[in-house]
């Protein structure tokens, strides 16, 4: 699996790492049940802090995309995973775009409400 980050980007590194995993899951490149690289190994290779990778994995766990098991590492969750990853990826992109345009979360929510 390919992880790409840009240290000069406005997007935090943990969010870039999480986005890589989301993209891979949404594209079907990472199958449910597969194991992601240990956070220590990935952090060493990306030359970032291990807690940055752990934060990314934690965010993905909160979204229901990963299962973090003690001693077994990060495992891609098994149910409705591809659509969920795609949706989370789109929402993250949407929030980033809203930030860029100076929209607050409340304004964005109102805008979405009017579109429904």
């Amino acid at each position: 699996m390919l992880f790409e980050i840009d240290t000069r980007s406005q997007v935090p590194i943990y969010a870039q790492i999480a986005a890589c995993v989301r993209r891979a899951i949404a594209a079907g490149a990472v199958k449910p049940g597969s194991k992601l690289p240990p956070s220590r190994d990935l952090a060493r290779e990306l030359e970032v802090n291990m807690h940055t990778v752990q934060r990314a994995y934690g965010e993905l766990r909160d979204e229901g995309l990963l299962e973090l098991r003690q001693g077994r590492g990060a495992i891609v969750a098994s149910s409705h995973i591809e659509s969920s990853a795609r949706l989370h990826g789109l929402l993250h992109d949407l929030l980033a775009e809203a930030d860029e345009q100076g929209l607050t979360t409340a304004e964005l929510a109102r805008l979405m409400e009017t579109m429904r």
Binding site: M1, F3, E4
Partner: peptide
Amino acid sequence: SSRRSVWLAE
């Protein structure tokens, strides 16, 4: 470079 790429497999 600010861009870093890592491809990992086991």
